[in-house]
Structure formats: structure tokens, C-alpha cells
Design a protein around this nucleic acid. Structure first.
Lengths: 193, 193
DNA sequence: TCTCGAATCTAGCAGTGCTAGAAAACCTAG
DNA sequence: CTAGGTTTTCTAGCACTGCTAGATTCGAGA
């Protein structure tokens, strides 16, 4: 049960290829363009094979892509934070977060537009989701009940979505990041009660 | 051309019924449940009739619902603002905005998830969209280039979406609104440059 | 080489958005 | 009141979607 049998290995490899194909196609042309037929074609098999790997069909594939996305987003935010603190940390996180959303629009969409059935700041939250929340909390120095972090996350999420929907002038992103720095930097005296 | 002919009147009436049916069904079961067949059934006609009113099909129907939504959302925010100013104004707007999102999830989704092809703060923005932006700018006292308002809007939008996606504890909404009040209330000394 | 179980494919269902062409309804002119 | 033509409405169908039951092929062990 420890070492992977050749069969298990091929299964894993194919699972990876399915997810990669779905991710790439979705990032390029949107999730509507990700069809089970096209996906099966890309990996060189027929439709039913997909259901051997993901019994839940397209929805389960999107879910798997979303979970990978959470891990990656958290990793990049963590890296951007590093040892920085204060306002610089807030802005660094914002840059990393918005970059991720720009570069992987469909992955981001799957992460948030889909009912994964897990809250971020609850006790029963899956570790992968909780970790992302914690990085943001650390950046803004949230020591309260998490509401401040929720609002910070919301602002990042909103900017990401509205930029992607073409609702905001892309070239103004630096201004928005500066605004986030001003309004969410930790240890501002007037946020203490 | 001034007074409506009976024919024009019936056409308008039916157009309204199509939009109402689409809106109600979408708010109840999501846009995926809004099919042209069901829609035609509801208004007592067959599919092709829909395309007489909305040549662009389902997408154009969603667009029309979205535009109505912008007008209504702006109206409710304007009413909530009233003559209040300062922190109370920010929180009043937030309450009205989030309530709208909760009560009309599908309308809200159509408003923002769809490429309408119009930015909010640009000079070429349609009046109906611009008006919504202006209310928010007024509430937070934005006299800059609009970046602060964009971030405020993003925070509201993010909260609305993440609540709907089940990512946030609904009962904590008051906390989030208080956070918005703290961080976006106008005339805070340290936001001046 | 034969067998049997697992992997894979073929073929099809029910549903979607959308549309060309037939049928029906309506209004106007004689 | 009827005939004509225009407009409106429906019938029927296409190409596509996600998904699945049953036939078929493949591959490893005896």
C-alpha cells in the first residue's frame, strides 16, 4: 500500500493530465469551453474515462482545480509576505493576490464562484482554506474575531472580480493597492477599541 | 409615434413578463434553471417568440435584468444615504447594498458576473452605472480620482459574493459593516496627503 | 494459450440555446 | 363580407451539452 503500483501511477498521471487540460482550457476560454468531450479528446481517451477519475463529472473536476488553486494562492501570498510587516506587508499580499487572479482567471473563478461548502474563518474549515485566511490575518495584524480579515479578503476578492469583469481601469490597480495599504495597515491607533 | 399603439402596448407588456419570469426563476433556482423553454412556457408562448423580443437570446435577457438591477440598487443606496454623512452614511449604504445582494442573488450575479462592457468610473460610462458609483463616492467623501470608491465598492462586492458563496458567517455581517465604517468613513485625518 | 476481470469504447438519452420554414391570425382594401 | 397580404406564432429540427448502460477490447495470471 506504500509504494505506488504501475497501475496506480498511470491513474495518477492521467488524473493530473485531466486537471491540467481543464485548467488550461478554462483559463484560456472560460469554463463554458471546457466540455467533457474536448477534455477526453485532449487526454486521448473517451468521455466515460473521465467519470472513472471524477465520478462527480465536470463539477468535481472544477472542484479539484479549485482546491489546487487555494493551495497555490496561499503559497504565493505566504511568499510575498515573507518577513515584512506593516503597510508594506499589506500591499505585498495585495499584489500577489491580484496577480494570481489575473493570471489564472478560471482557476480563481472556480475557487470562489462554486459552492465548495466551506467557510474560511470557521472552526470546521479545511486546513487548505484556513491557511489562506491566516496569511491575510497576519498581514493586517488581525487579533479580533476575524471580521477585519473578512473585509480585507472581500476587498481583494472584489477588486479581482471587478477588474476581470472589465469594471475597473486596469492601469489604476496601483492606486487601489495603495488605498488598501492606507486602510488596512495594522496597528493604526483608531482601530483599537 | 407618441401615443402607444395597442400592439406596442402588448409587446411592452410581454417584454416585461419575460424579464419578470427570468428574474424570479433565477433568484429562486439560479440562472442555470432559466431555460428558454421554461421561460416561453411561463409566458404562454413558444420559444421563438422570445427571440422576437430579445434577438440576443438568453444573454440579452440577462443583460436587461442586470440593467434594471443597477437602477434599483442605485435607488436603494440613494434612499439609504439620504442626508446622512460621515460614518453612519457609510454603514447605511453598506446595509442597503448587502441587503440587495441577499434578496436578489441572481439579479446581482447578472449585474457583475457578466461582461456588460462598461466601466464604472470612466468618462464613457452609461449614466445608470455612473450614478451608482457616485452614491458610493459621496458616502465615503471621495474627492480623489475614484480609487478609494473603487476599493469601497470592491469590499461591498466581495462581501456580497463571499456571503452568497457560503464563505462567510452570515451572522457576522454587522461586524463587517462596522469594519467598513471604521475604515471608509470620510475625513479621517490620516487619509489626507 | 486460455480465462476472467478490469479498462475502454460505442451508442444513446435527455436536456440546452437557437433558427428556418410552415401555419395561423390579423388587419386592411375592395 | 370577402380576398389579399402582412405580421405573428408555431412546428420541427440542428448542433451541442453532461452523463451512462451495455458491448467490446485489453492484459495479467494460471
Amino acid at each position: 500500500m506504500a509504494d505506488p503500483t504501475p497501475r496506480q501511477q498511470r491513474t495518477d498521471e492521467r488524473r493530473r493530465r485531466i486537471l491540467a487540460a481543464a485548467r488550461d482550457r478554462a483559463d484560456a476560454d472560460g469554463w463554458a469551453a471546457v466540455t467533457t468531450r474536448h477534455l477526453a479528446d485532449t487526454i486521448g481517451y473517451t468521455q466515460p474515462v473521465l467519470y472513472g477519475h471524477f465520478p462527480g463529472g465536470k463539477a468535481e473536476i472544477m472542484l479539484a482545480v479549485a482546491l489546487e488553486g487555494f493551495v497555490e494562492l496561499t503559497r504565493q501570498c505566504r511568499a510575498a509576505l515573507g518577513e515584512t510587516r506593516g503597510r508594506a506587508a499589506v500591499e505585498a499580499i495585495a499584489v500577489a493576490y491580484l496577480d494570481f487572479g489575473s493570471k489564472h482567471p478560471a482557476v480563481y473563478e472556480a475557487m470562489f464562484q462554486q459552492p465548495i461548502g466551506a467557510r474560511f474563518a470557521a472552526d470546521d474549515t479545511a486546513p487548505d482554506l484556513r491557511a489562506g485566511f491566516d496569511v491575510l490575518a497576519e498581514a493586517i495584524g488581525d487579533r479580533g474575531d476575524g471580521s477585519a480579515t473578512e473585509v480585507f479578503w472581500s476587498a481583494l476578492h472584489g477588486i479581482s472580480e471587478l477588474e476581470r469583469a472589465g469594471r475597473m481601469r486596469l492601469e489604476h490597480r496601483p492606486n487601489r493597492i495603495a488605498e488598501l495599504g492606507t486602510r488596512f495597515a495594522p496597528d493604526r491607533p483608531d482601530t483599537h477599541h
